[in-house]
Amino acid sequence: MKRIFLLIATNVAIMLVLSVVASVLGLDRYLTANGMNYGALLGMSAIFGFGGAFISLAISKWMAKRTTGARVITQPSNSAEMWLLNTVERQARAAGINMPEVAIFDSPEPNAFATGMSKNSSLVAVSTGLMQTMQQDEVEAVLGHEISHIANGDMVTLTLVQGVVNTFVFFLSRVIGYLVDSFLNRGNNRDSGPGIGYMVTVFVMQILLGFLASMVVAWFSRQREFRADAGGAHLAGKRKMIAALQRLKAAHELPSTLPKQMTAMGIREGGGVMALFATHPPLEVRINALQNAGSAVQ
């Protein structure tokens, strides 16, 4: 309920901010005087901006299982799966969340991710490569990192951030499109509505603003990774968390096999991603951050 309230409150706050800014600049009066329904655009921007982000969050577990082929462990078939379930259960209890679903997906790359609509309805999945190439202590730290993502509410936080930037992209691209079209058609009869200038400008601006929005979301994602590393160190131990990151760094030259939409949820990201668009900080930076952390993280 708290998360739903936060989603609604953020949506309302964004609409108020856009309304105030437009009013101060006189943009609302100009658009209304020139035939654009400013209020309808504002409402539609919020609905489409947050609606898409919220739907993605709602189906995130289903999508994760489908795209990675993750198999949820309902009945452990060996000692490794039993250990996996027991470790996640212990860490979830320590983090104060409900037991997540635990799954394994087939991939030679050492990786893991957490997803779900809320901290009490979530999924933690690890790759076969992670289980085969890492020591048990290192896997424990990776699980602690993912449990911390859930306990910190990172899935909802990033959804809110994505919803905010989506709203701005949708709104601004159409306002700019309308202004450009008005300039190109000044003196002409506007009864037929916006012309080709509007459509082309909206298309171009959504691409350009979308790139900027992606950088904003990626920056927030990188900050959440530092918090999850600290959480993993708290749940499993600082030494284990550092060892896990060092192991991942050694395997980092392997390309990520997670689907593109899942990379932000993984423990590491494949190479070749421009720094501003990377959802994870460089592994050496994360290792240094943990090594330089105070005594609160042991």
Results as ranks from 00 to 15, higher is better:
residue 1 M to T: 12
residue 2 K to Q: 14
residue 4 I to W: 13
residue 10 T to M: 13
residue 13 A to D: 00
residue 14 I to C: 09
residue 15 M to G: 15
residue 17 V to W: 04
residue 20 V to E: 08
residue 21 V to M: 13
residue 21 V to G: 07
residue 23 S to A: 15
residue 24 V to T: 05
residue 25 L to N: 07
residue 26 G to V: 02
residue 34 N to H: 15
residue 34 N to L: 10
residue 37 N to L: 08
residue 38 Y to I: 04
residue 38 Y to V: 10
residue 42 L to R: 03
residue 42 L to A: 09
residue 44 M to D: 12
residue 44 M to R: 14
residue 45 S to I: 07
residue 52 G to C: 04
residue 52 G to W: 10
residue 55 I to Y: 07
residue 57 L to K: 01
residue 58 A to R: 13
residue 59 I to T: 10
residue 59 I to P: 03
residue 59 I to Y: 07
residue 63 M to R: 15
residue 64 A to K: 08
residue 66 R to K: 15
residue 67 T to Q: 14
residue 68 T to R: 02
residue 70 A to Q: 07
residue 73 I to K: 00
residue 77 S to Y: 10
residue 78 N to Q: 02
residue 78 N to R: 06
residue 79 S to T: 14
residue 81 E to T: 02
residue 82 M to L: 15
residue 82 M to S: 15
residue 87 T to L: 01
residue 89 E to T: 13
residue 93 R to I: 01
residue 97 I to R: 03
residue 97 I to G: 01
residue 100 P to C: 06
residue 106 D to I: 10
residue 106 D to V: 12
residue 111 N to D: 09
residue 117 M to W: 14
residue 117 M to C: 12
residue 120 N to K: 00
residue 120 N to G: 02
residue 121 S to C: 11
residue 127 S to G: 08
residue 128 T to L: 06
residue 132 Q to E: 15
residue 134 M to C: 12
residue 134 M to V: 09
residue 137 D to K: 12
residue 151 A to H: 01
residue 151 A to T: 04
residue 152 N to C: 01
residue 152 N to W: 06
residue 153 G to E: 03
residue 154 D to R: 03
residue 154 D to G: 04
residue 156 V to W: 11
residue 162 Q to H: 14
residue 166 N to A: 04
residue 173 S to K: 08
residue 178 Y to W: 10
residue 179 L to R: 06
residue 183 F to A: 13
residue 183 F to S: 06
residue 183 F to K: 08
residue 189 N to R: 08
residue 191 D to L: 12
residue 194 P to V: 09
residue 194 P to Q: 09
residue 195 G to A: 03
residue 196 I to Q: 11
residue 197 G to D: 03
residue 197 G to K: 01
residue 198 Y to L: 04
residue 198 Y to I: 09
residue 199 M to G: 14
residue 201 T to W: 05
residue 202 V to Y: 05
residue 208 L to I: 13
residue 210 G to T: 09
residue 211 F to M: 15
residue 213 A to S: 09
residue 213 A to F: 00
residue 215 M to F: 07
residue 216 V to N: 01
residue 219 W to Q: 13
residue 224 R to K: 08
residue 225 E to V: 00
residue 227 R to Y: 13
residue 231 G to W: 00
residue 233 A to F: 05
residue 238 K to A: 02
residue 242 I to T: 06
residue 244 A to H: 00
residue 244 A to K: 02
residue 248 L to R: 02
residue 256 S to W: 08
residue 256 S to T: 14
residue 257 T to P: 00
residue 259 P to K: 03
residue 261 Q to V: 14
residue 266 G to S: 12
residue 271 G to L: 10
residue 272 G to D: 08
residue 273 V to T: 12
residue 274 M to C: 10
residue 276 L to G: 11
residue 278 A to G: 07
residue 282 P to V: 04
residue 282 P to W: 05
residue 285 V to S: 14
residue 288 N to V: 11
residue 291 Q to I: 08
residue 294 G to C: 00
residue 295 S to D: 13
residue 296 A to V: 12
residue 297 V to I: 15
residue 298 Q to I: 14
residue 298 Q to P: 13
